[in-house]
Design a binder for these strands. Structure first.
Length: 486
RNA sequence: GGCGACGUAGCCAAGUGGUAAGGCAAUGGUCUGCAAAACCAUUAUUCAGCGGUUCAAAUCCGCUCGUCGCCUCCA
């Protein structure tokens, strides 16, 4: 089964056909490191983490590159504010980024190049563009001559005329055309700078990705990704630079994920409505956040609400409890017949193929999770119906399905912990919040059971209410009374 | 103003030509002295509205309304 991915360039889902047999080369735009990362950054990291894990699961070799922008106007401005060197500030937030990524369980990319470590490559590329007449030095800066690149605007679906008609265009007398963008910026006093043929300065924002992707992946590679907000101008400009220089296609497929919103508005620094990754992780485990992120397909907007996170938490418990149930299945026997209906058996046996079918369709994690939960439902049902000594066949079916569930959820970075331990730990955690000792609880239960023996329901219920006031719930089962923290 | 996306049950969300996955919540059942927990079951004749194409549309086309995004740094 082929994998289809929505390509921003063609506005269609296209078959993934790597240039090299079975080897996918992926470049993703990483962060500009000047502040803590928010949930939007988490979505970006999580989406591509999922994509890479899935492609590898499907047998592809993946070379995954994600860069750091460690030199840029905002870094310089923030560093100046704080009175530190921009390189120090950039490194500090790269460290903070790693803290967040590790907490989220994100796999490290194969390569994480930094802009400042590729200045010579960028200068070389800028020179090539000048030599081709696609760029021009002007007053210590170098600009890209967008009018010379016929494809300009194709990715973002706009023409130069459209953009100039309605846009607020910065006034810059050094540019031939207001839409021309900087490849190289002359250093102002006190700013970080590098030697170049055009004088001391620093690279423009877009050139780093063109230079670094070319160095590590070649002139043309398979997939380039990032957030939707990078389509214009960043990725449009990258294409202009890279294709302009090479005369070849740049990335074959462009993958762009949607935003995280709050009250249906884009989460962003400028609106001040952002939550940092660590803010959220203080309240919810990473797996819950992952489940939330993957509850919708990556291209759609995703609205962040407490309720949605709570839902995700509940459904994560559901997966773990199902796995724990399967881990605790009794011994089997050879005598007897299966109790599993053909329909249920098929659902469990097809868990993988259903999951793959969803994921092959532009990484439709929402549908994939739907199939997984459908599997959980069937597993619970079958486990519940099992007799005291189930036949080996049924046990094997459940255990295999449980293993499949674990493996598939693992692609989303979910249900990666030991299920039995998860359930135990969850209970222990709740236990720590109560203010009664086990002895006190047990003696109250004994007292209640005595009352129940005597059918003194009022006294019995009084004890139950008393315990409930301490958040302790009683479960009267066939084996006696057990308790749990609510 | 230009370009684009989206609008599916109380909430979230799949489904992109063949007759509505899944999760949360709710309700019912099993269990229980009654409960709780757990599990199971049920829950949209209908997909923003109005037209059109088609044997057949939530899915394609047009218009209207609504929400959001990009056009400036942004994941």
């Amino acid at each position: 089964m082929p994998i289809r991915i929505y390509n921003t360039l063609s506005r269609k889902k296209e078959l993934l056909q790597p240039l090299e047999e079975n080897h996918v080369k992926l470049y993703v735009c990483g962060i500009t490191s000047y502040d803590y990362c928010h949930i939007g950054h988490a979505r970006s990291a999580l989406v591509f983490d999922m994509a890479v894990r899935y492609l590898r699961y499907r047998g592809y070799q993946v070379t995954f590159i994600r860069n750091f922008t460690d030199i840029d106007d905002k870094i310089i401005a923030r560093a100046a504010e704080q009175g530190v060197e921009s390189g120090i500030l950039a490194q500090r937030f790269i460290d903070e980024f790693y803290t967040d990524m590790d907490a989220l369980g994100i796999l490290r990319p194969d390569l994480e190049p930094r802009a400042t470590e590729h200045i010579p490559e960028m200068i070389e590329l800028v020179q090539e563009l000048i030599d081709k007449g696609l760029a021009y030095p002007s007053g210590g800066d170098v600009y890209y001559r967008v009018g010379r690149f016929g494809e300009y605007g194709r990715l973002s679906g706009r023409s130069l005329d459209d953009m100039q008609a309605g846009a607020r265009i910065e006034v810059n007398a050094q540019k031939e055309n207001p839409m021309d963008f900087a490849l190289w910026k002359q250093a102002k006093p006190g700013e970080p700078k590098w030697e170049s043929p055009w004088g001391e300065g620093r690279p423009g924002w877009h050139i780093e990705c063109s230079a670094m992707s070319r160095k590590y992946l070649g002139e043309t590679f398979d997939i380039h990704g990032g957030g939707k907000d990078l389509i214009f101008p960043h990725h449009e400009n990258e294409i202009a630079q890279s294709s302009g220089a090479s005369g070849k296609p740049f990335a074959n497929l462009w993958m762009h994920h949607g935003f995280v919103t709050i009250k249906d508005e884009k989460m962003s620094k400028s609106l001040g409505n952002f939550l940092t990754i660590r803010d959220v992780l203080r309240q919810y485990p990473a797996e819950v956040l992952r489940l939330f992120i993957f509850s919708t397909q990556y291209r759609n907007p995703l609205d962040f609400t407490e309720a949605a996170l709570q839902d995700a938490r509940t459904s994560l418990d559901r997966i773990y409890e199902c796995l724990a149930t399967i881990a605790g299945l009794p011994e089997g026997t050879d005598n007897g017949n299966t109790i599993v209906s053909k329909k249920d058996r098929n659902k469990l046996q097809n868990l993988k193929s259903r999951f793959e079918q969803a994921m092959d369709n532009d990484f439709n994690t929402a549908q994939a999770l739907g199939f997984l939960f459908d599997g959980v439902k069937v597993m619970n049902k079958v486990a519940r119906m099992l007799p005291e000594h189930p036949v080996h066949e049924d046990l094997a079916l459940l255990r295999t399905a449980g293993e499949d569930l674990r493996e598939l959820a693992g692609i989303l970075g979910v249900a990666t912990r030991d299920a039995v331990q998860y359930v135990v730990e969850k209970k222990e955690k709740l236990l720590a919040t109560i203010d009664l000792s086990e002895e006190e609880i047990n003696s109250l239960i004994i007292r209640r059971n005595a009352a129940r023996e005597n059918k003194d329901w009022a006294a019995s219920d009084a004890v139950r209410d008393q315990l409930l006031a301490h958040n302790i719930e009683l479960h009267d089962g066939p084996e006696g009374t057990t308790w749990d923290v609510k």
